[in-house]
Write a protein that binds this DNA or RNA. Structure first.
Length: 235
DNA sequence: GCGACAG
DNA sequence: ATCTTGTCGC
């Protein structure tokens, strides 16, 4: 039901072709403030068994105000591209788009489990996905791909900019007191400050009593793992 | 040339 | 990412 813009094919692409595609697409990415107040936010993720090509992809949409789950979809597909640092989108986006099409709700903003412009060519999975979904997207990763930063203060909410070749590409953000930071970077049609604020708003619990991983990603992670273990059915 | 390297 | 028990620290 939810649609997207098929900017290019995902099959028969070699790693070399993928890099060329990223170079071609990067100029279309827009880092700017939101043009409307978002009411809903979606999280997306995939899961799979080691050494197997079957992938379990899912998307969970939540009410940004209450954080209640509005809708969730899960699909079983297969990966055709291997995991290559810097080319994650080519491995995960195809199945995520299959899940996206099952959505009845059109999320106002989408959070990805990976980088946005904090990428060697400034087009990580959140940016690439944003171009296809044609709406605000950002990345919230558990580790760094590129960029350096000063350790942020130990309190939830503190953050420090991540720099890569003189460009501020993201931020190391503390989502919980005294816990390792997450790495936030704008994907498309959003700016860093907004991405940081949205990430902090997605904390499960009051007063930072939630988890390190923001709710959209955390819930989707649980969903796709349950799908993989057969504890839940696909849509 | 030697490491680093989202999920 | 996935495979897994106990263990250190607030």
């Amino acid at each position: 039901m939810a649609t997207y813009k098929p900017l290019h094919d995902w099959t028969n692409i070699s790693p070399t072709d993928a890099v060329a595609l990223q170079q071609q697409l990067r100029s279309q990415i827009r880092i700017e403030p939101l043009t409307a107040t978002p009411q809903t936010i979606a999280g997306c993720d995939i899961s799979f068994n080691k050494f197997e090509e079957t992938v379990y992809a899912g998307i969970v949409v939540l009410n940004l105000e209450t954080l209640e789950t509005i809708e969730e979809v899960g699909v079983i597909s297969s990966a055709t591209f291997p995991y290559v640092p810097g080319l994650l989108s080519f491995r995960e986006i195809p199945s995520l788009l299959e899940a996206w099409q099952k959505l009845k709700t059109e999320p106002d903003v989408v959070m990805f489990d990976g980088q946005g412009i904090a990428h060697p060519r400034r087009i990580g999975i959140a940016s690439h996905g944003g171009l296809f979904l044609n709406r605000p997207t950002f990345g919230c990763a558990k580790s760094v791909l590129v960029g350096k930063y000063e350790e942020p203060a130990p309190e939830r909410g503190s953050w420090s900019p991540m720099t890569h070749y003189k460009d501020v590409v993201g931020a190391a953000l503390r989502t919980k007191n005294k816990v390792n930071p997450v790495y936030v970077s704008p994907g498309h049609l959003i700016d860093l400050e907004t991405a940081i604020n949205l990430t902090l708003r997605c904390d499960g619990g009051r007063r930072g009593y939630g988890y390190r991983i923001p709710e959209p990603t955390r819930r989707t992670h649980n969903l796709v793992n349950a799908l993989r273990r057969g504890e839940r059915k696909a849509d």
